[in-house]
C-alpha cells in the first residue's frame, strides 16, 4: 500500500495543474492541439488557408468522396446539426478534407461539397500538404490495395476537430456523441464571450 502513496501524490500534484472542469459536453481539447492552419485547395482549385475561416466556428473532418457510408453519414449529421442553428449557421464552416487527391479532383470536390449544402467546404491538397495537416492534428490515414477496376479503400480517422471563431482547437467529436451535445457546444462556441461584470 505504502508504495502507492508516492505515485498517487505525484498524480494528484500533476493533475491539479491540469484542466479544470470543462463547460462543454464534447471532449475538450483546448491547449492540446495547435490552432487552425492549413494549405489546401477547394473545389474551384483556389488555394485556401486557415485564415479564410477566421471568425467562423470550424468543424474539420478527414475522409474521401469514394467512401459511401461513413463520410456522407458524418457530413449529413454535421450539416443537419448546423442547419438547426438557423441564422447562426452562416458563422460555421464544415471542412471536409479529402486525403485522396488522386481521385478527388477539384470538380469532384465541388459537386460533393454542394451536395451537402452551403456550409460544407470540400478541400484537398498534395500528399505533402495533406501529410503535414494530418501530422499537425495527429491523425492517421492509409490506402488499401486497388481492385481490378482501380478502386481502393482509404482508411481515415473518424474524429471531427472543432475550432472556435479565433481558430483555436477546442473540441473533439466522435460518432458516439449525440446531436444534441454537438449542437449545444457549437452554440456555446458561437456565443459572444461573457463580459466581466462588477
Amino acid at each position: 500500500m505504502k508504495r502507492l502513496v508516492w505515485p498517487l501524490l505525484l498524480v494528484l500534484a500533476l493533475a491539479g495543474c491540469g484542466d479544470s472542469a470543462s463547460l462543454y459536453r464534447l471532449r475538450d481539447i483546448s491547449a492540446l492541439l495547435p490552432p487552425l492552419a492549413l494549405r489546401l485547395h477547394d473545389g474551384d482549385n483556389r488555394p485556401r488557408s486557415g485564415a479564410d475561416f477566421a471568425g467562423q466556428v470550424v468543424l474539420m473532418y478527414f475522409g474521401y468522396t469514394h467512401c459511401p457510408d461513413i463520410c456522407p453519414t458524418t457530413l449529413a449529421r454535421l450539416a443537419g446539426v448546423v442547419r438547426q442553428l438557423g441564422a447562426a449557421a452562416a458563422r460555421v464552416s464544415i471542412l471536409f478534407v479529402s486525403v485522396d487527391p488522386a481521385r478527388d479532383t477539384p470538380a469532384v470536390l465541388r459537386a460533393y461539397g454542394e451536395a451537402f449544402g452551403p456550409r460544407v467546404v470540400a478541400l484537398s491538397g498534395s500528399q505533402r500538404q495533406l501529410g503535414a495537416l494530418a501530422k499537425r492534428y495527429r491523425v492517421s490515414y492509409g490506402f488499401g490495395p486497388a481492385d481490378s477496376d482501380g478502386q481502393y479503400e482509404v482508411s481515415h480517422s473518424s474524429a471531427v476537430f472543432i475550432f472556435d471563431t479565433r481558430g483555436r482547437a477546442r473540441l473533439l467529436a466522435t460518432a458516439s456523441d449525440s446531436d444534441a451535445d454537438l449542437l449545444a457546444d457549437i452554440q456555446r462556441l458561437l456565443a459572444p464571450a461573457p463580459v466581466a461584470t462588477r
Binding site: 508504495r3 508516492w6 505525484l10 498524480v11 493533475a15 492540446l32 495527429r138
Partner: peptide, 25 residues
C-alpha cells in the same frame, strides 16, 4: 527512486493523462 520509476509509468498511463500526451506534441 523506485516510486518515481513506477509512478511515472502509472502517471502517463492514466487514461486522461495519456489522451493529452498523445494529442499534444
Amino acid at each position: 527512486a523506485p516510486r518515481l520509476f513506477v509512478g511515472l509509468i502509472y502517471f502517463w498511463l492514466l487514461p486522461e493523462v495519456h489522451f493529452g500526451a498523445m494529442l499534444s506534441a
